[in-house]
């Protein structure tokens, strides 16, 4: 079993989900090669080489890979992947963008967002917004898989000493070009990695009222999330959305404020260890999954909670 893991990074730092993907890889086999494709990403390759369990790091450093456009990176991964039994990537927006293109180039089906490894060819993954768990077996020569971070504990980012090998021969497919990006700025922990998440829904009323949640989150060292209703109403940017179509989180503590608890939202947070719901509607479905529920006006409760902590 030799496994190729595609690292997630921004050319400067290695992204957390890669460590969870390495954990999944270690459950499959011991020979783990990590590909870092980017531009001026030697620092990332160095960081990957320190991670526990990594056998070798391949560094493909070229302008063609600067923004990890799948038109350029997928042929690279597919060509390398032919020699491996498994190709894994985190189920991040990058991983989801890239890996199906790789799978099709290899003419195999992909398995998306696995949450557990049953054996080297059998995996579990949620379907129907997490309302069913499918056990899927792959007979593909190369098993192409994306890994849901919340299903696996991260491997330590230290303890390894893998050699780094530079790859040459990059080509730009010339099909696509990066134009620009707008990244949301925040000092709070990253949503998918946070130990505590405070989320607001339609009940917040408007974007300004999210300041109540920011104060609470800062007190707890938490990240702030949102339901689709809050995003669609323009209260907060879409990268804060938790749910089937947004981010999947599984923190120690998830505090849902003014969120009814639709199926699509639950899909993104119901694996949280402890769920707290604050809602004025006693019948809200969120109370069916909440460990602790508090019925009442969030505009009274949240500030009080912040001051009590």
């Amino acid at each position: 079993m030799s496994i190729l893991v595609v690292a997630e990074h921004d050319n400067r730092t290695l992204a957390g989900p890669t460590l969870h993907t390495l954990a999944a890889a270690r459950q499959i086999g011991a020979d783990i090669v990590v590909l870092v494709a980017g531009l001026d990403a030697a620092g990332v390759a160095f960081a990957v080489a320190q991670c526990t369990g990594v056998t070798k790091v391949l560094l493909a450093d070229d302008a063609a890979y600067a923004h990890q456009l799948p038109e350029n990176v997928a042929p690279l991964v597919a060509n390398l992947g032919r020699d491996f039994s498994h190709v894994l990537a985190p189920a991040t927006s990058n991983g989801k963008n890239l890996l199906p293109r790789v799978a099709a180039l290899l003419d195999v089906d992909q398995i998306s967002e696995i949450i557990s490894v049953e054996s080297a060819d059998t995996f579990k993954r949620p379907i129907y917004a997490g309302n069913a768990i499918a056990t899927v077996q792959s007979s593909a020569a190369v098993k192409v898989i994306t890994v849901r971070s919340t299903g696996f504990e991260a491997v330590p980012a230290e303890g390894g000493r893998a050699p780094i090998e530079a790859l040459g021969g990059a080509t730009d497919a010339g099909l696509s070009a990066f134009v620009g990006e707008e990244l949301a700025k925040s000092n709070r922990p990253e949503l998918t990695a946070a130990k505590i998440v405070v989320s607001g829904g339609r009940g917040m009323g408007n974007g300004d009222n999210f300041s109540h949640l920011y104060s609470l989150a800062d007190k707890l060292g938490a990240a702030v999330g949102a339901s689709r209703a809050a995003v669609d109403a323009g209260f907060v940017p879409n990268d804060m959305q938790v749910g089937q179509t947004g981010k999947i989180v599984a923190p120690q503590l998830y505090i849902a404020v003014g969120i009814s608890g639709a199926i699509q939202h639950l899909a993104g947070m119901k694996d949280s260890k402890v769920i707290v719901a604050i809602n004025k509607d006693e019948e809200a479905p969120i109370f069916q999954v909440a460990d602790y529920g508090l019925v009442g006006d969030l505009f009274e409760i949240v500030p009080k909670l912040t001051s009590t902590l």
Binding site: A132, I133, K270, G293, L294
Partner: peptide, 21 residues
């Protein structure tokens, strides 16, 4: 297809907790 679904199960049920005052 190279994928085969062996089984489909209901996820672990999460039961309602308590309401605090």
């Amino acid at each position: 297809s190279t994928n085969k679904t062996l089984k489909v199960e209901a996820p672990a049920a999460r039961s309602a907790g308590i309401k605090v005052k």
